Simulated assay, not measured.
Amino acid sequence: MRVLAMAERRLPALTRLRDREPLPIHLHRRRIYVLPSMFGIVFAILLAVMQLGALNFANNPALLLTCLLAAAAWMSLFAGFRTLADLQLEAISSTPCHVGEMAQVSFRFAVSARARPSLRMRCGGIDHPFAIAAGSAATVNMALASERRGWLRPGRLRLWTDQPLGLFVIWSWLNPDISILVFPAAESPVPPFPLNAQGQSERSSSGDGDEFSGLREYRSGDPQRRIAWKASARHESLLVRESERLFDDDLHFEHATLGGLDSEARIRRLTAWILAAEAARRSYTLELPDQRLGPGLGDLHRHACLRALALMPDAT
Rank of each mutant, 00 (worst) to 15 (best):
L69Y: 08
I178W: 00
G150W: 04
A310F: 09
G135P: 09
A5M: 10
A228C: 13
A72T: 12
Q198W: 10
F168I: 03
G100D: 05
T316D: 14
A133I: 04
G125Y: 12
L309S: 00
T15F: 13
Q88R: 09
Q291E: 15
D162L: 11
H252S: 11
E202Y: 08
S232V: 10
Q163I: 02
E242D: 15
V3K: 11
L69K: 01
W273I: 06
A131N: 10
T139N: 09
L174V: 10
D210R: 11
V105H: 04
A110I: 05
G125L: 13
I274F: 03
P164T: 02
S172F: 06
G199T: 13
I227T: 13
L69D: 00
A310C: 13
A133Y: 04
M102V: 08
A85E: 11
A228D: 15
D86Q: 11
W273G: 06
S118T: 08
I25S: 05
L69P: 02
Q51P: 02
R216K: 15
G199V: 07
M6I: 11
A91E: 15
L14A: 06
A72S: 11
R225P: 09
A265D: 11
S220C: 12
A58P: 00
L165W: 06
S206E: 15
E242W: 10
D208R: 12
G124S: 09
E187A: 04
L64E: 02
P313D: 11
V42W: 12
G260N: 06
A54P: 07
E147R: 13
F43R: 01
V49H: 09
E264Y: 00
L27Q: 11
R241C: 05
C305P: 02
A277Q: 07
G260L: 03
L69F: 15
C67H: 14
A91M: 07
S94Q: 04
L17G: 04
A138Q: 11
H26Q: 13
I227H: 01
S206P: 13
A72V: 15
P96G: 03
I180V: 15
S93R: 11
L165E: 01
A308G: 01
R225L: 12
T316P: 07
E264W: 06
L195Y: 05
Q51K: 02
F43V: 02
N59C: 08
E147P: 00
M142G: 07
A256C: 10
D249P: 00
A113N: 08
P191M: 01
R9G: 01
A133H: 10
L46Q: 10
L17K: 05
M312S: 05
I227E: 01
G100E: 02
M38R: 05
V105A: 07
R234F: 09
A197G: 14
D290P: 00
A315Q: 04
F253T: 00
H301P: 07
K230W: 10
P176G: 03
S237L: 12
E187Y: 00
A265R: 07
A103Q: 02
L35H: 01
V3Y: 13
R307W: 04
L11I: 08
G259S: 09
S204Y: 13
A7E: 04
L77K: 03
M312E: 12
R268C: 13
L157Q: 04
R266K: 14
E236F: 08
L46P: 01
N175R: 06
L55Y: 14
N59Q: 09
